[in-house]
Design a protein around this nucleic acid. Structure first.
Lengths: 229, 229
DNA sequence: AAGTGGTCTAGACCACTTC
DNA sequence: AAGTGGTCTAGACCACTTC
């Protein structure tokens, strides 16, 4: 666990970048005073998790960020827009602290009156709105959520930092937007939206419930996976 | 590889059912004449792939089919309908062999004139259409596709059997259906659809390209994953 | 007490890539 | 020739569950 954690931390904190060579098995044996099998297992598991790529005879390397994959929806929408070479901009409609009423309490599986944050943000690619993000967040899991400037960095970015992602659930459906949504997304009448409900867990608790709404015709979700061999 | 394959085959062919206990590490050591570490690794990898659940002190057991998971879209739509306790029915509009024209050749990344099958099927839950499936399949990868009776079992079921799934790619978008689609799905005017494009690879080749179209408001895709610890 | 998985060790042989 | 990962062995100690 320590070996994997150590390498993962080096990657997360930028000391190891995609393509960089990680310590070899032999180096890990020395550094961590373990047997080679243990070092081997740590690197092998990092490979299986897609964090590291290993090449016999060459070494182990930090994997490139997966361009498509199960994780695509987890990517920061800001990064995604920028990766297409476009400007990203966000407009924060509101971000306030509330107390859970019956409906919100059920949503986040907490008691009545629990402190929550409620944010509504419109994300833009160049000048076009591409996503409306409405989100409820458990305040105790992300205490400073309400003070954050989400026009500078996304809730997703903040949340994954303060509440390490443990489990994610997505539901996707097509729908016709109401007038408010249509206005925010700048849609013509009769245009459908692609709506994703996204719930995230951290440290055993449901931490966030979000609705991500996209213009149906100008946005695609994609995902790919390969079967382990 | 042999150990994992052997256990996986037992599961796939029903000799081991969800909840059943798999051979223990000690038994694998005897049967396959390997060291315990090798048996341990095989079972551990099956666990990491979600095939097997292991409990210290108790044993290893065939995992329950994941109710939600990355693989949900891979499940047979027939099974999915039945798992909701509803009747499943399919209407095969057509299933014919064609030669790839320029457009289809590009779609499946093959040469002009390559033999393909083209099927169009409407899937029903109880009496309601819930999915229109249009599919192009590489004939050389699934030679008997054209003779199959897809009102009895789905293309997906046949394909995963003859062409083991290696990689899947999904794209999802919301759209307004054309008149034909609207009729097939029994939709009112102004109702959006959720359209999934699904490509599958087997043995290194792109084998199938399908469009799965659902009534937007009566269907949801869902997916969840947990981060490895 | 016997069986289970969790984890680790110290060593081995191998094919491959790098220099 | 030196370094890399791929894989395996035979043994160990442990905590837990079952009977």
């Amino acid at each position: 666990m320590t070996i994997k954690d150590s390498i993962f931390e080096d990657i997360r904190e930028g000391r190891l970048k995609p393509g960089d060579q990680t310590p070899s098995e032999a180096e890990l044996v020395e550094t961590f005073k373990v047997s080679r099998m243990t070092a081997n297992r740590a690197l092998r598991e990092l490979q299986s998790a897609g964090i590291v790529v290993r090449r016999a005879g060459r070494g182990s390397f930090v994997a490139e960020p997966r361009p498509i994959g199960q994780l695509i929806e987890i990517r920061n929408i800001a990064d995604e827009v920028r990766s297409r070479g476009h400007a990203y901009r966000a407009r924060v409609v509101h971000n306030v602290e509330i107390r859970a009423d019956a409906e919100r309490a059920a949503l986040l599986e907490v008691g009545l009156g629990t402190r929550l944050f409620h944010s509504l943000i419109v994300h833009h690619e160049t000048e076009f709105p591409i996503q409306v993000e409405e989100r409820f967040v458990l305040a105790s899991a992300a205490p400073r959520y309400g003070e954050r400037d989400f026009s500078a960095s996304t809730p997703n970015e903040y949340l994954t930092r303060v509440a390490p992602l443990e489990r994610v659930e997505h539901r996707v459906c097509a729908a016709m937007p109401d007038t408010g949504m249509r206005t925010m997304l700048g849609l013509a009448e009769g245009e459908p939206v692609l709506m994703m409900t996204r719930r995230t867990w951290s440290r055993g608790r449901l931490v966030s419930h979000a609705w991500l709404t996209h213009p149906g015709n100008r946005f695609e979700l994609s995902a790919a996976f390969s079967v382990e061999t």
